[in-house]
Amino acid sequence: MSSRPSAPKSSETALWRPSRDEVSGLVEWSAFFAAWGFRGHWPAIADDPEQRDEALKLFRDAQDELARLEPDIRCVAAVLPANAVGEDVEIYASEARDEARERFCFLRMQRVRADGGPLYSLSDFVAPKSSGIPDWIGLFEVSVFGGTEAAAEARSRGDEYSALLRQLLFDRLAEAAAEWTHRKTMSDLWGIGDGGPAVGIRPAPGYPACPDHTEKAKIWSLLEVERNVGAKLTENYAISPVSSVCGLMFAHPKSTYFGIGKIGRDQLADYASRKGWTLDEARRWLAPSLDEE
């Protein structure tokens, strides 16, 4: 089987403000219950005699609370021309592809795989520049505003339970909005699929497939996140407001989530030179991917 990247319908930056009810159907409840210390998946939790009673009570409270929340959901996304150069992915200013306006840097797995499977890098899911085949990459950022204030309001009344409930619901809404945005981007911008579950993956910088949090800054500049959404990055690249998600979208039909794991010193040096970092800077930002000597 072979794949031919498909051209997007639009490479404009899109802004969306979905309502609470548009995204709440996409809330992944298992994570919500895990945060409260329940074991297993929702709705299987509701069949577990040990957990059922408390889980159902919590679910009811969560539904009631959700119905009262007034989240301000803001999403930004774009599908941009891109090609891979080694583990980097260049983003081009136009379809002429003669000027790279940005360059995402990814890592590659270096673990010994007994199954002989591939040693992935996210760049593998984008057609290499050398192939001459045009490809694209999607970017998005979503933030749900109002959560911090809603939690603080409950907390000021001494109601820690509602405060935590609200915080967790806002987090879940942000994840649901990310799913919503992924689907919307694929169908409305990229023209792949019908708005149902999206083809491909949407990994986030700072997480296993691309552990370097600093790559988020590139999303910020390409999507003008601060202007379009109002979300900011802290000095350590956490997003404020806290109920936010950003990521990259890859449409390759065989793209898959994976974890980089630990990398060798050779790749540390290689990555540092690609990022223009000293080795010490690279060590700091990639610490979790390094063997702790």
Binding site: M1, S2, P118, K254, K262, G264
Partner: peptide, 21 residues
């Protein structure tokens, strides 16, 4: 000691093939 690793150039040879055409 650290877990065994594949050298970077060897890892690159074992990349995922996108089978572009």
């Amino acid at each position: 000691g650290p877990a065994a690793k594949v050298p970077l150039d060897e890892a690159r040879r074992r990349k995922f093939e996108g089978e572009w055409n």
